[in-house]
């Protein structure tokens, strides 16, 4: 387990797990995470997606610094208040300097978001 950022602590709690073939998260949708319609806000969804992708990137970089270059999110379905969210992320391809990743989020087992992220490995040059 790595320590969490101030932003993830503020909007959390988010619980991350690393495994040999990826990273995952669990999270429960609460009042402060909602949009005006009573469902999880798109920003919170993307925070979870980029959170699990970033956790995967850090786990895969052998201690080198990582940073997202691009993140793409598709809003596939809604997440109601109280729903249990599970997120999983896997590596699509890794080169020496770049990591291609993919994630999905499910709320009460229903697909909520699919996302991909491209991460830099190593310092910016």
């Amino acid at each position: 387990m790595s320590s969490q950022s101030a932003f993830e602590s503020h909007v959390g709690p988010i619980s991350y797990t690393r495994s040999d073939d990826g990273a995952s998260l669990s999270f429960t949708i609460d009042e402060q995470h909602l949009n005006g319609d009573g469902f999880i806000h798109g920003g919170m969804m993307m925070t979870l997606a980029s959170g699990v992708l970033g956790e995967l990137a850090r786990a895969s970089a052998d201690g080198a610094p990582t940073a997202p270059l691009s993140v793409n999110c598709d809003f596939v379905g809604p997440g109601p208040k109280g729903a249990a969210v599970i997120g999983t992320a896997t590596i699509t391809r890794r080169t020496r300097t770049v990591l291609f990743t993919s994630a999905e989020l499910r709320a009460n087992d229903k697909l909520m978001m699919t996302a991909t992220g491209v991460y830099r490995i190593g310092e910016a040059s």
Binding site: S5, A6, E8, H10, G43, M44, T47, G51, P68
Partner: peptide, 23 residues
């Protein structure tokens, strides 16, 4: 502000930046 910071404790977290882009 302090609440928005990412793992390095200096720069905004990407989740806050995407939330801002969405809003």
């Amino acid at each position: 502000d302090e609440r928005h910071l990412g793992h390095d404790g200096v720069h905004s977290h990407e989740g806050q930046l995407m939330t801002f882009a969405d809003a």
